[in-house]
Structures are given as structure tokens and as C-alpha cells.
Simulated assay, not measured.
Amino acid sequence: MALPDPAAPLRAAIIIPARYASTRYPAKPLAMLRGPRQMAKPLLAWTLDAARAVRGASAVYVATDHPLIADAATAAGAPVLMTPAACANGTERCAAALSGLPDPADIIINFQGDALLTPPFVVEALIEAMANDPSIQVATPVVRASPAVQRRLIEDQRAGRVGGTTVTFGQHHDALYFSKSVIPHLPPARIGDPSSPLFFHIGVYAYRVAALQGYAALPVGTLELLEGLEQLRFLEAGKPVRIVEVRDPGHDLWELNNPEDIPFIEAILADRDAA
């Protein structure tokens, strides 16, 4: 068998994991959202639009466990990879979908189904980082928190709300820890300082196929369960996760987590179209 050409471009495939059952928001991928010109379509279709705008990806798939979501994906022109209902998170679902890929891929992008506001350049930065450094097995993007976002995250924490996930990383940009608490601690004098090392995690992941295949075999860790963050399974097992800093997208990267989020996301879609 011929060895792969190391000079050949990476084959990157995007998988959108989409499940029907959800404690907070059942059937979320089918929720209708209005966008530019009051056009309404399911959340899944909006997310497919965002994923298809990524340059450097050879294909976009939907991985699901439910026929209604499969039907919605097919209606939006996306190939479907059926996966078990028992998948605990999006990474497990992407791993389960690997066996159904019709074409080989070198890296898999986990483009979460509720992340319709993710700009293409965020995913393109992950692909570029992995193409430039073959040692990276898992990568995920962050953006430095602006003074306003710093204050919002800290105010949310004081009020007992989760305002987003933050991450710390070392000098080689491998993650030290992800948390739904604000990390690192900022003394009062550093809150609002644009140079403060407070980084907001964007929930998109890129994996080498071997790293993704090995994920489901790793033990579920205590920290993963406490934080509710799937990527901590890699860290708890001693597997590095590379952090890729991207520029501020200029709008909120809000995910659709609850029905109450719909008006806010629709407003962002309308503002982005007007711009």
C-alpha cells in the first residue's frame, strides 16, 4: 500500500453532531429560526450554512441518532451518518460516525450543532494549525476576552450563572485547564485590562482521526463530569489539546442552549446581514 504524500494537503471533513433528546431543549436541531429577510429554517440548516462556508473542508456531514433530524439534514442537502443514541457528547458522536464516512479524512472538525454563529475563519485557523504542525492531535480555538466580556463573565460568576467556558494554557499553547468558572483569577486591578490572560473558549474541535478514535476508549474523568466539558477527558488522560487563538469575530458567539436564546440569536443574524 502506498504511503500518504506528506506534502499533500490535509483532507478535512466537518461533522455536525446533532441529537434529538436534550434535557434542556428537546429537538433543538429542529427549532425554527428567522434570519435575513425573515427567512425561517431549522437551526440545523443554519449550522450547515455556517459549516459549508469553511474553506479547506472537503465535506460536511450530520451525525445523529434520530430519523427526524436525519430527514431535516437530507432536506438541507447534507449527507447523514447515523450514530447510537448512547453517545454522551459531540466528540463521542463524531467518533461513532467515523466508520460511516464515505471518503477518507485526515482530520475531523466537530462543528457543534448549536454553534451557527461560528465564523468560517475560526475553523480555518484550526485546519491551518494542524496542517502546519503534524504533532497536534487535538485543537480548539479561543479568543482573548475584551474588557466588556471580562466584566460580563465575572458578573455572571458572581451571580451564580455560567457565562461561558474559559481556558488557561502554557507557553507552547497546550491547554492547562478548561472551566465554566472564570480562570485565571483576575485581581480587581486587572479586570478590564485588555492584556489580561482571560480567554473565552469557542466550542469547535479539530482531531486527527487516531485521536478521535481513541477518545471513546478513554475513561470518563471526574473533572469532565463536574464541569460538563467533554474536552477535559483528553486532559485528564494526559492527552494535549492545542489552543489556537483567533481574532475577535466582532459579534457574540452565542449558542442556542434554551428557547429563550432564540430572539437574541435572531437579532445577531439580522445585524450581521445588515452589515
Rank of each mutant, 00 (worst) to 15 (best):
A27Q: 09
H185Y: 14
A86D: 14
E155Y: 07
L116P: 00
I191W: 08
D174T: 15
Q231H: 12
L229G: 05
I127N: 03
L269A: 04
L186T: 12
R55M: 08
H172Y: 06
R55T: 05
A53W: 06
A76E: 07
A148P: 00
H251T: 11
P197A: 06
A8D: 05
L176E: 13
V246T: 15
A139E: 08
I202D: 12
Q171M: 12
L48C: 01
R55Y: 00
Q137S: 14
E236H: 06
V149E: 12
S99M: 06
R272L: 15
L256K: 01
A159C: 09
R208I: 04
A86L: 09
A53V: 08
P188W: 13
A217Y: 02
P36V: 00
A70V: 02
R152E: 15
V123L: 11
L98E: 01
L186F: 13
T168L: 06
K41E: 10
F234T: 05
W254Q: 15
V149I: 14
L153D: 00
L116Q: 07
L225G: 00
L226Q: 13
A53M: 10
Y205F: 14
R52G: 10
E245Y: 05
F121T: 04
N132D: 10
D271P: 00
I265F: 08
D273K: 02
E92S: 11
F234I: 02
Q171C: 11
F200M: 09
D103Y: 07
V60G: 05
Y215T: 07
P184W: 00
S181G: 10
A12V: 00
Q157T: 09
R19I: 02
N258W: 13
A78T: 03
P119Y: 02
A86T: 15
H201L: 03
I268R: 04
V123D: 08
I243Y: 12
D271T: 09
F111R: 10
R190V: 10
V209N: 04
M1T: 11
P79Q: 08
P42Y: 08
A57Y: 04
D106I: 01
A12N: 01
R93N: 03
A211E: 07
P188D: 15
L48F: 03
Y20R: 13
L235C: 07
Q213K: 15
E230T: 09
H173W: 05
A31W: 02
L229P: 02
I243S: 12
V62A: 03
R233H: 06
G77N: 13
R24E: 05
T47S: 06
P188M: 14
T118P: 05
D261M: 05
V122L: 03
P219E: 13
K41V: 00
S179M: 07
M130A: 02
M39L: 14
R247H: 14
F111I: 11
P67L: 01
N132H: 12
A131F: 03
A63M: 01
F111T: 09
